[in-house]
Design a protein around this nucleic acid. Structure first.
Lengths: 117, 117
DNA sequence: TCTATTCATTGACATTCGTCGATGAATGGA
DNA sequence: TCCATTCATCGACGAATGTCAATGAATAGA
């Protein structure tokens, strides 16, 4: 019996085999999607602006606070909408955005699952 | 006095001006860096594997649980090291990695600052 | 109906990212 | 000293990302 075919999972048997990750691939991809949506300083500050305003804010008022164009703001808002970090509602010509606090509230739970506690 | 030069911050004065984001640009960039480090399913599962193992795990044992090559695992580990999500320690030829639980513990606080609560 | 305003979408571009194969550095053992 | 093993780094590649200018869709008001 060669050393290559040993039992414990690693070649030499000098240390215990490592436990596999417990988080399913599907959920890892879901969490990664959430984090990816927040992996941009502009999106974080858009979220923070919406959170700092009690009332919903329309896109043109968001644009005023950033040095980037309106299409880019719309692009970021779409990403935040698709990950349900913000909600949108239209009033006439305007689109009013507000933060979805429930969504961010799930972060501690996600952190616990990743950290296996 | 034209409507363009009105006082309240938006052109028509029909709604209150939006409050600016409170989170400083510097901190937004810092948080985005943290989230970016977690914005990949493989890195999340590497973190979860390290968390599921009480003892530090060497790179070759990590590699066994993923369908990607060792250089790519090393690349991900470097990103997690640079953002201090994991710590490394060498023992002879081996590099042993373990999770840095303090770092993930700061997430709820970051979430609160972003959400302005 | 026509015009102005608000916002989303498209297409393009440079940059960044995830992955790989190849190679290099460090360590331990023969 | 030489070799085997472990891990990091480099160079390259395709895919995804952030940004913009231009355009389109929807709505309100004249």
């Amino acid at each position: 019996m060669s050393r290559k075919t040993e039992v414990s999972g690693n070649g030499c048997g000098c240390r215990p085999a490592a436990v596999a990750p417990k988080l399913p691939r599907i959920r890892a991809r879901e969490y990664a999607g959430w984090f990816k949506a927040l992996a941009d300083p502009t999106r974080i500050r858009i979220l923070n602006l919406l959170a700092a305003n009690r009332e919903p804010v329309c896109v043109c008022d968001i644009v005023k606070h950033f040095p980037i164009g309106q299409p880019t703001i719309s692009h970021h808002l779409k990403i935040l909408r698709d990950t349900c970090f913000v909600k949108a509602e239209r009033r006439g010509t305007f689109m009013y955005y507000r933060v979805n606090r429930n969504c961010l509230a799930e972060f501690p739970q996600a952190a616990r699952l990743i950290m296996d506690v």
